[in-house]
Nucleic acid binder design. Structure first.
Lengths: 112, 112
DNA sequence: AGATATAACCTAGCGTCACTAGGTATATGG
DNA sequence: CCATATACCTAGTGACGCTAGGTTATATCT
């Protein structure tokens, strides 16, 4: 599974991760690795810019949190716009994966 | 369904299209549109460079065909290397779509 | 005859984006 | 003291789908 595949899908994965609850960047990376069972082991240089992009686009909001121990964390939360976007992107993914499946999943009946 | 999604998947779609039989570039475009039921309506500037790329990589071979009427066509055929690559890429797609599904298909049981 | 449309090919340049590689700061365990 | 893990950041690179423009050939409509 090469890295190029993720292009255009990373944002959706991040939004879906934060749908389960707010989290800081590093935790997002770990949660994506966990839920994907290791299929998505994303470097920070991939995720941090994506988070900034999504905040700039208004789909996420962030708050700096200073814990008693350890360094500052930036906690991201899905905005209402982000929730709406996620819903639309789910439909986009459904159409996309269905279409690709026609070509790459020949065992399925719809592969005409 | 935005265009960025296709990145890293177009090659696989093309290989799978030519698995059904050799075809020239323009026909590949039409066949992809047909099989995807219009989801993939790809411009020539997307498909032709991809075909050249795949031939350069040894996954496709091409022959110029001069018909009685009309202009010359370049007919592409899957090479043995291409067939093997397609098989691997099918597995890559299976893993990828499973992993994304965890995030974007919450109705499915595996979405833990 | 001229205009338009479709089939069929091509490529230079653009923008997006995941990734590499490097940096900073805080805490813990050997 | 040094390595490891946590936690953040960004400049630059490379890959690639797409835009926009071009060429050649046949058919159709005015």
């Amino acid at each position: 599974m090469n890295a190029e595949m993720l292009k255009g899908h990373l944002d959706n994965v991040i939004l879906a991760t934060l749908e389960q609850g707010s989290a800081h960047g590093y935790a997002v990376i770990e949660e994506i690795r966990r839920r994907s069972r290791g299929s998505f082991n994303l470097p920070e240089g991939t995720v941090y810019p994506a988070l900034h992009r999504l905040e700039l686009a208004g789909l996420l909001a962030s708050d700096w949190v200073t814990p008693d121990a350890g360094r500052r964390k930036r906690v991201y939360t899905l905005t209402p716009t982000g929730k709406k976007a996620l819903k639309e992107r789910r439909e986009g993914w459904a159409e996309f994966s269905r279409a690709v499946g026609v070509f790459l999943e020949p065992d399925k009946p719809w592969a005409a």
